[in-house]
């Protein structure tokens, strides 16, 4: 009950910020339509809808990190959290309250991207449903990252680190916008150690119906999600104690 009331508030705060809607939904859709138009003129295998859409649905999640981190950082600044700490809300209420409302937003963003992609010519198959389902563990990683950043950074720092740095990392090291095999070397190896590339390849494999390829990419995503969630909880509890 307490957690739900808090989660509802967090969902409203995110949805009512027009910038969130513009970046969370508008920006991935603009990229999808733009890259599809380029693909129509100059065909590039990387930008075929079946490879582009899974990448964009993952890339779009980096904005969810920004939203959750901003919300937490602003709450810390405004002393709203301080007020709520003096109520009977438990640490679990806070962590779930910040995490759960963002999950349906991630799924909605994914569904809308696929709906637009279908309108642009993507084949409608049951694999799209699986891709939407498997966006959930990927979303948990991105949300945990937001919880972590929001717990340690100020609201101004969140804009720079989550808004610029993270979205760039998520773009460069995920293989959405260029083929990492062409870059090769250290860059390719680094990408394989991080979760961004695995998240994109996971979604691509699901959409292609290449189910054997799912687990090798799902495991690192789940691993990173678990580690970042634990880190996020520890750091959130630490700031809760310090405040």
């Amino acid at each position: 009950m307490r957690m739900l009331a808090f989660a509802k508030r967090n969902a409203l705060e995110i949805l009512r910020d027009p910038l969130n809607l513009i970046f969370g939904l508008g920006f991935p859709l603009v990229l999808l339509i733009l890259m599809n138009a380029i693909q129509s003129s100059i065909p590039v295998p990387l930008f075929e809808l079946s490879r582009l859409v899974p990448g964009i649905t993952v890339f779009g999640l980096s904005f969810m990190t920004l939203f959750s981190a901003s919300l937490i950082a602003k709450d810390r600044k405004s002393a709203l959290l301080c007020r709520l700490y003096t109520t009977k809300m438990t640490p679990t209420d806070f962590i779930l309250g910040y995490t759960l409302p963002v999950l349906p937003l991630c799924a909605a963003q994914c569904v809308i991207c696929y709906a637009v992609a279908i309108a642009l010519g993507l084949d409608m198959t049951v694999h799209i449903l699986y891709a939407v389902l498997l966006i959930v563990p990927v979303s948990v990683f991105y949300i945990a990252l937001g919880l972590l950043c929001g717990s340690v950074l100020s609201d101004k720092q969140v804009g720079g680190i989550c808004g610029a740095l993270l979205s760039n990392l998520s773009a460069w090291l995920s293989g959405v916008w260029f083929d990492l095999e062409l870059v090769g070397g250290f860059f390719r190896r680094l990408a394989s150690y991080l979760p961004f590339l695995h998240a994109v390849e996971l979604e691509r494999a699901v959409l292609a119906g290449n189910f054997e390829a799912i687990l090798p990419h799902l495991l690192p995503v789940l691993g990173y999600a678990a580690v970042f969630l634990i880190l996020a909880v520890v750091l959130f509890l630490r700031q809760m104690k310090n405040s």
Binding site: L12, L80, C82
Partner: peptide
């Protein structure tokens, strides 16, 4: 107890 903190602790978007 209830606390009204020094800063205005309200949810701005609500």
């Amino acid at each position: 107890i209830a606390v009204s903190p020094q800063e205005t602790a309200v949810a701005p978007g609500l």
